[in-house]
Design a protein around this nucleic acid. Structure first.
Lengths: 197, 197
DNA sequence: TGTGTGAGTAAGTATTACTCACCAAAACTT
DNA sequence: AAGTTTTGGTGAGTAATACTTACTCACACA
C-alpha cells in the first residue's frame, strides 16, 4: 500500500505530537522510534508508513512549526511601514517565538542543518520564504533611501539571521530566560546605528 | 586496563585523522565506527579505549582543530592596536579558517551543539577562550572610547559571533567558495557604521 | 456482493555503537 | 634479573534501534 500524502490521519498527527513532546526534554538522537510510537499510542511500523525515516519525521515536525511561525511574522510585518520597523519586528517576533517555542528553535538551530536531505525538505522551503521576506524588506529599504545604498542586501540578511540566532542560542541550549524585547533593542541599535563611537 | 590520557599513541591519532578525513565527504552520523577503524587501520575496539563514545571522539577532533584555530587568531590579533582592527582581524581570520577547513567549520557549526555533553568537553573550553578574547576586545574598545559606551558587550559579542557563523554557513553547507576578505569588509561596515542611511 | 484503499498491526531483520576478555611487549620495581 | 604493572592493541561478541515486510480490519462505493 502506498500513502498518497494528501490526508492527515490521527495516527500521523499523534506521531508528530509525540516527537515534539519528547524533544522537550531530549535531543533528537536520544529519542527512539520505540518511545515515539509508545507515546503516540501506535506501533513503530506506522511511523514508517507516513515518514520515510526518523529524520524525515523531524523535518515534518519543523515544517508544521515553521508554517505557524511564518504566519505570525508575516502578519506582524505587514502592519509596519518603514523598512527598519519591519526588520525590528522580524527580529522581535523571531526571538519571541524562539523563546516561547524551544523545541522549534532547537530543531531549527541545532538538529536539522547537519543532514543534506533537510535542504530538499518542505520545511526548508518555509525557511527560504522567511529569508526571502527579509531580503525583500532590505532591498525595499535601500530603494526608499532608509538604508545605506552601499550595503550588500544578501550579506545584511546574513548578519540579521546570524545575529538573531546567536542572540538566543545560549538561552535555547541552556534553557534560560530570554528578554526578547531588550535584546531586540540592543541588536537594532548596533545594526542600524553602528557600534563605532 | 585504564587509559590515563596523558599520552598520544599512534593508534589514537590515526583514529582522529580517520574521522576527520571521512567527514570531508560525509556528515558525522553517516560515518560508522567500522569505517573509522578500517581507515585508521585499527580495530573498532581501540576507538573505545581512547574515546568513551563516538561523540566524544568527535569532540576531541574539534578540540585539536580548535586549538590550532585559537593559536592562529590569538597570534594575529596581538599585532593590531585598535579594538576595531582587532575585531576585524578576528572576523577575517575566522572566516578564512572556516573556508580553508570545512570539516572544522561543519563540526563546530552543525554537528556538536545538539548534544549536552559537548558543553562539558575540552573543545568547548577552547570555544569559551575564543569568545572570552572577543569580549575582552570589546570591553577594551568601549573603555578606550573607540566603541559606543551604550552597547552591551555581551550582546555585541553575540552579534559578531552570529554574524560570522551565518556569513559562511551557506558556503560551508553547500561547499561553495567564500571570499573571506570581501565578506569581512561588508560585515565590518555594517557592524561599526550601521546600516541606516 | 465484491473490490480497492486507507489506516494500522505484529513480528521480524540488519546495522551499528559499544563491551569484554585477552594478549604482547614495554616500563617500572625491588 | 625476575617479577609486576602499565600501555597499546585485538577480535569476537552483545544490545539496541532504525527500518521492513507480510498481514489485517474497516469501509466506501459501484
Amino acid at each position: 500500500m502506498k500513502h498518497k500524502g494528501n490526508t492527515n490521519p490521527p495516527g500521523r498527527q499523534k506521531i508528530i505530537e509525540a516527537l515534539t513532546r519528547l524533544m522537550w526534554t531530549k535531543e533528537f538522537h536520544a529519542v527512539t522510534t520505540a518511545e515515539i510510537a509508545e507515546l503516540a499510542g501506535v506501533t513503530e511500523g506506522l511511523i514508517y508508513k507516513y515518514f520515510k525515516s526518523k529524520k524525515e519525521l523531524l523535518h515534518q515536525v519543523l515544517n508544521e512549526l515553521f508554517t505557524r511561525f511564518n504566519q505570525t511574522v508575516f502578519e506582524r510585518v505587514a502592519h509596519k511601514a518603514s523598512a527598519i520597523e519591519k526588520l525590528e519586528i522580524v527580529i522581535h517576533s523571531s526571538l519571541e517565538y524562539y523563546a516561547a517555542n524551544r523545541v522549534f528553535a532547537r530543531i531549527l538551530l541545532l538538529e536539522v542543518r547537519n543532514s543534506p536531505d533537510y535542504f530538499s525538505s518542505e520545511a526548508y522551503t518555509r525557511v527560504r520564504a522567511y529569508a526571502a521576506k527579509i531580503l525583500e524588506i532590505i532591498q525595499n529599504g535601500i530603494h526608499k533611501g532608509e538604508l545605506r545604498p552601499d550595503i550588500d542586501p544578501l550579506i545584511f540578511r546574513k548578519i540579521i539571521l546570524g545575529t538573531m540566532e546567536h542572540a538566543c542560542l545560549g538561552e535555547i541550549i541552556f534553557t534560560r530566560e530570554l528578554d526578547a524585547l531588550a535584546v531586540t533593542r540592543h541588536i537594532s541599535t548596533i545594526l542600524f546605528n553602528g557600534a563605532k563611537a
